[in-house]
């Protein structure tokens, strides 16, 4: 019997596979297709304090082995989430993480302050890295100072662990990671999407109404994996890797490179069963290789 559980220190997951925020809805959208109880966990779509509309369409454009989105974080806000969604999530035996958004540090803190009153949330993933809400993809995770101030304020406010979600759109992701760690983040998740664009040559217009969007999918995996490896080698807190994971093999690459757990994103659109299939593929790999505990695989990249 292979032990797939992983221990993030502040949180034990039954397996390392987490549905990624923005691709997993509020979780319930996947109920017709998979048993949510089988997941290591999932991160519900980013929540601002108030309901938000998001960007006008077109919000999506497909590129070779990739998807650029400029959804713009629409959502129902914390009040409706706590009334309509959270009670339905509490019945599941899996780890629920809430992705927390804010237009400024105070809003991040107010979301956390509000949700702290409710049971059923294991941790907050601080979304300081969405490229689709401000012009030119601006977000706190582009600067060590802004990362530090957002993470430290939320950490002070929150009674729950904080996972800082980092952006790949930086010159040195390790520097940002160290800032988040210093500010008190309990874990890091990386990476969010890569700022990208596509052009319609007939109309000469951008293919997204927002002009720029965030690239995800297999196209980004090698770069996201490299960033995960760089960060995991420098911080002491656990790192959750993500970017283009479609299969068990992809997830294993991230874990060998140092990720304690992984988030699966775009794959959920292609196949709503992706997360459970990846869990099965991890189990098969461990059995084939005679690995009793998957944790022993983490960070074992050979020279």
């Amino acid at each position: 019997m292979t032990d797939l559980s992983v221990d993030l220190g502040f949180l034990k997951l039954k397996n390392p596979v987490i549905g990624a925020s923005g691709t997993f809805g509020y979780g319930l959208e996947f109920e017709p297709y998979i048993d949510l109880n089988r997941l290591g966990g999932f991160v519900v779509k980013g929540l601002y304090f108030s309901p938000r509309e998001g960007n006008p369409p077109p919000r999506l454009v497909e590129t070779p082995s990739g998807l650029i989105n400029a959804i713009g974080l629409p959502g129902i806000g914390v009040k409706r989430f706590s009334e309509e969604i959270l009670p339905r999530l509490q019945k599941f035996n899996t780890t629920i993480i809430v992705n927390v958004c804010g237009e400024n540090n105070e809003e991040y803190a107010s979301v956390v302050e509000f949700l702290d009153k409710y049971d059923g949330i294991a941790a907050y993933e601080l979304n300081i890295s969405c490229p689709n809400v401000e012009q030119d993809g601006l977000c706190p995770a582009l600067s060590p100072e802004a990362t530090f101030s957002a993470v430290s304020l939320v950490k002070k406010t929150s009674s729950r662990p904080i996972i800082a979600k980092l952006s790949p759109n930086v010159t040195d992701v390790v520097q940002i990671a160290l800032s988040a760690e210093e500010a008190g983040a309990d874990a890091l998740s990386l990476v969010n999407t890569f700022l990208a664009m596509a052009v319609d040559i007939e109309t000469r217009k951008p293919k997204l109404s927002n002009i720029y969007g965030g690239l995800s999918g297999p196209a980004i995996k090698p770069i996201a994996l490299r960033m995960t490896h760089q960060v995991a080698g420098r911080v002491k807190i656990p790192v959750i890797g993500m970017g283009g994971i479609l299969t068990g093999q992809d997830a294993l690459e991230y874990m060998i490179a140092g990720a304690k757990a992984v988030e699966v994103g775009t794959a959920n659109f292609i196949d709503p069963e992706s997360t459970v299939k990846i869990i099965e593929e991890l189990r098969e790999y461990c059995q084939k290789k005679g690995i009793d505990r998957i944790e022993t695989l983490i960070g074992t990249l050979q020279a």
Partner: peptide
């Protein structure tokens, strides 16, 4: 993106 409400793309 997905067809079942998870991506908010359409």
């Amino acid at each position: 993106g997905c067809g079942f409400g998870a991506c908010w793309g359409c």
